[in-house]
Write a protein that binds this DNA or RNA. Structure first.
Lengths: 148, 148
DNA sequence: GTAATTGCTAAAGTTTACTTTAGCTCAAGG
DNA sequence: CCTTGAGCTAAAGTAAACTTTAGCAATTAC
């Protein structure tokens, strides 16, 4: 029962995903979708490609690069709709990444809090701001927030 | 008492900040520092420029773009070392931005949590993942995580 | 059946934040 | 004095993630 009508041209995919046609072509070039072609060379997408591309968009908004997304997607079955198990695994990985990002931001904020009002900009001893001679000599720069 | 010895050439600034010489030149082009020039055209930096550039680095690591940093710095006095009040104001602004970023990530995580295990990838009703026809028709795409 | 729409490719352009290169000039040390 | 090392400029290169353009071909709508 797989009629040709189940396939969609790039414009429809663009409408359904909210992406630009050029972006979708770019994603194909990047190996994130693999539409087939008509005899005349026009792209034909599966319905499940809408979900694939939606996945790309969500993952991007979570801060993943296209190459990271491609890696993650490489673990998904090409043709069939991803299973519940696929989605669970991916969701949990995303959650871990989000947790880490939140943790890091909170630690940064706490350090910043410790500095508000200390006037360190005019002092030589602020761990957050001032690369002292030792650190400066090592070419480290003010990475105290990040490294610490 | 402002001897010429108070001024530093670009190489010294690079050492003290841990930045590349080329990066410092770039920051000058971007209006983030304003070294003066010797008669022969070589850059001479003030000691306080080390702090200016350190500020750039910290702000970048907090996720600000160079143009945002330039705006923030435009509010700082050119010549003198920033005051305690300057630093307090900036710190608080940074803190606000960090808080917002943390909030948003936490909300995203909560939505993701609600989806783990729901199998929505294979359903048509997942608010997180599936752009249904109405949303798709409006060209919205899967921005549920972000917008909601 | 023909015009308007949609699609195609390849290549170049965009933005951010820099680095690298080429070709010179300055400045400091012996 | 003369050789290095440091500096200078302008322009091009880099990476990511796309968009835009140019010049055509295929489809769709009337």
């Amino acid at each position: 029962m797989r009629r040709p009508g189940d396939m969609l041209p790039i414009g429809r995919i663009a409408e359904r995903t909210g992406m630009a046609v050029s972006a979708i072509r770019y994603y194909e070039a990047e190996g994130l979708v693999h539409p087939i072609r008509t005899a005349a060379g026009q792209r034909q997408f599966r319905r499940s490609d809408i979900r694939r591309l939606s996945f790309v968009k969500i993952a991007q908004e979570l801060g993943f690069s296209l190459s990271e997304i491609r890696e993650e997607m490489a673990k998904l079955p090409e043709g069939r709709t991803p299973t519940k198990a696929d989605w669970e695994r991916i969701s949990r990985r995303f959650r871990t990444v989000l947790d880490q990002r939140i943790d890091r931001l909170q630690r940064t904020r706490d350090k910043l809090d410790g500095c508000i009002g200390c006037g360190c900009l005019s002092l030589k001893s602020c761990a957050l701001y001032n690369p002292d001679d030792e650190k400066g000599a090592r070419g480290a720069g003010p990475r105290n927030i990040i490294d610490g």
